[in-house]
Amino acid sequence: MKAKVIVGAIVVVIGLVLGAMNFMESNVEYADFSVAEQSHKKVQVKGEWMKEEATNFDVQKVKFSFFMKDESNRVVKVVLDGAKPNNFELASSVVAKGKFTNGEFHASEVLTKCPSKYEGSSETVKKTL
């Protein structure tokens, strides 16, 4: 009986430790471009899309690129694997997840944070009068 409890406890502890390690690994840290440039790790950078700079969509490679200003005001070209994200024009800020290579930020994912259209706002209430 005792032996079983000990074996069980060891299995549980190992499981928890592995789970915790996995948790740490898969939590992508926030950073700005300068930190990302040095670390070469996958990070997420929060910032805003530079609307006045050109955006480009490469039809053949299916890559969307735009310029983004991070929270320390550094502007870097972001190349996203995929098309322009949903609600990109609306976004008040964007979060790009990816790695910094060769002076560009290669993002696997770009999340857009929108001032939700489906939230009550006094502007829309006036429009529907």
């Binding site: 789970g19 996995n22 948790f23 690994e25 898969s26 939590n27 992508v28 840290e29 926030y30 997420q44």
Partner: peptide, 24 residues
């Protein structure tokens, strides 16, 4: 709960990647 855990531990909320769920 990752956003809660990370915001307490690191001060900034971040979600885990899907890989976490697959691996565990």
């Amino acid at each position: 709960s990752s956003p809660i855990i990370t915001s307490i531990a690191k001060g900034k909320a971040s979600a885990v990647e899907i890989a976490y769920y697959v691996h565990t």
